[in-house]
Simulated assay, not measured.
Amino acid sequence: MSSPDVLNPIPLPNTVAAYWLSQLREKTPLIHCLTNQVVQNFTANVLLAIGASPAMVVAKQEAAEFSAIAGGLLVNVGTLNDIQIESMTLAVSAANVAGVPWVLDPVAVGGLAYRTDFCRDLLNLKPAAIRGNASEIMALAGFSSSGRGVDSADDSRAALPAAIRLAQRSGAVVAVTGEVDYVTDGKTCYALPFGDVLMTRVVGTGCALSAVVAAFIASGDENRLEQVATACMVMAICGGAAAMVSNGPGSFTPLFLDGLYNLQPQQLIGKTL
């Protein structure tokens, strides 16, 4: 049973977010992305813009070797197949041995048994963080959900109990994203309401966020809850700002990337809920 506090999300202190963004920029972590084929280019550009270094090493002969030397690992099951499963399993196992934190993005889990079973198996390998939409998090936690492929038909606030349970059972920090993002370790929950619906009209913003989560937790394990919440806050702030001045999805993407690149830690201190 969750405590009353965790069901009442709190804002992330702005100074905390500024600190973790400074840490990421200082360390420029190398992020190993085993992600879906649709979003590889966008994900790489987002990581570069935020200050990290992306690598898409996908061959099973190399995945384990590379994940062991990376700062963080992303496992995204968007275009899952048997070859990817082998590479992902090898990479996760090597990352765990090397102490490299990894992030699970359970794309479309709940609607398709093949990926749902694989992601539930991956939970036994202890991800440091899990990032998904409301329907994905609910399904992964064993709750009833109503997702349609990569689209969530569930509200992020309604998915908070599932996120809390998933965090408590897996030991991971869980981020459930939507109109408001919620990030919890099962004991505390942060609410990040800074995004814009236009972000859902551009392919890859959620998948790229999962890679950014991996970049922030590569800073060390001092406070992964704060790190994951900062990743969500930074992406949402830049997305919201880009949406305000764009004319639609086509103009949004370059403005979003520019916003990530130009965002300075001290600018986060001025943000309020």
Score class of each variant (00 low, 15 high):
residue 230 T to I: 10
residue 195 G to F: 08
residue 80 L to Q: 02
residue 212 V to E: 01
residue 105 D to I: 00
residue 24 L to K: 02
residue 128 A to I: 05
residue 79 T to W: 11
residue 254 P to K: 11
residue 165 R to S: 12
residue 142 G to N: 05
residue 264 Q to W: 12
residue 184 T to W: 04
residue 150 V to G: 01
residue 153 A to I: 11
residue 27 K to F: 09
residue 27 K to A: 09
residue 122 L to A: 07
residue 29 P to V: 11
residue 2 S to A: 15
residue 17 A to G: 07
residue 219 S to E: 15
residue 173 V to A: 05
residue 139 A to G: 10
residue 234 V to T: 06
residue 90 L to V: 12
residue 50 I to D: 01
residue 6 V to G: 04
residue 77 V to Y: 00
residue 21 L to S: 04
residue 142 G to P: 04
residue 252 F to N: 08
residue 96 N to W: 04
residue 47 L to M: 13
residue 220 G to I: 08
residue 24 L to C: 09
residue 112 L to I: 10
residue 75 V to L: 09
residue 87 S to M: 08
residue 207 C to D: 00
residue 230 T to F: 10
residue 132 G to C: 09
residue 270 G to F: 12
residue 39 V to Y: 01
residue 260 L to S: 03
residue 127 P to T: 13
residue 96 N to C: 10
residue 238 C to A: 12
residue 158 A to K: 08
residue 100 V to Q: 01
residue 109 V to F: 00
residue 249 P to G: 11
residue 217 I to R: 01
residue 13 P to K: 10
residue 224 R to Q: 07
residue 138 M to A: 04
residue 110 G to M: 04
residue 48 L to I: 11
residue 135 S to Y: 05
residue 19 Y to G: 13
residue 140 L to P: 02
residue 262 N to Y: 05
residue 260 L to A: 06
residue 48 L to D: 10
residue 50 I to Y: 00
residue 21 L to R: 08
residue 107 V to R: 00
residue 63 A to Q: 02
residue 64 A to M: 06
residue 251 S to R: 09
residue 102 W to Q: 02
residue 103 V to P: 00
residue 46 V to R: 01
residue 203 V to H: 04
residue 32 H to N: 10
residue 222 E to L: 15
residue 207 C to G: 02
residue 25 R to Q: 12
residue 246 S to C: 14
residue 25 R to Y: 03
residue 232 C to Q: 02
residue 4 P to C: 07
residue 249 P to W: 03
residue 66 F to Y: 15
residue 33 C to D: 02
residue 85 I to H: 03
residue 79 T to R: 09
residue 69 I to W: 08
residue 160 L to D: 06
residue 129 A to I: 11
residue 161 P to G: 13
residue 232 C to K: 03
residue 142 G to H: 12
residue 188 T to P: 01
residue 172 A to Q: 06
residue 116 T to P: 01
residue 170 S to T: 13
residue 5 D to F: 13
residue 121 D to M: 14
residue 72 G to M: 04
residue 67 S to V: 08
residue 63 A to K: 05
residue 44 A to H: 04
residue 216 F to I: 03
residue 199 M to K: 02
residue 191 A to G: 07
residue 187 K to H: 15
residue 78 G to F: 00
residue 263 L to W: 09
residue 27 K to R: 15
residue 115 R to P: 08
residue 148 R to F: 14
residue 1 M to Y: 14
residue 115 R to L: 12
residue 67 S to A: 14
residue 178 G to F: 04
residue 87 S to P: 07
residue 59 A to F: 13
residue 58 V to R: 04
residue 141 A to Q: 03
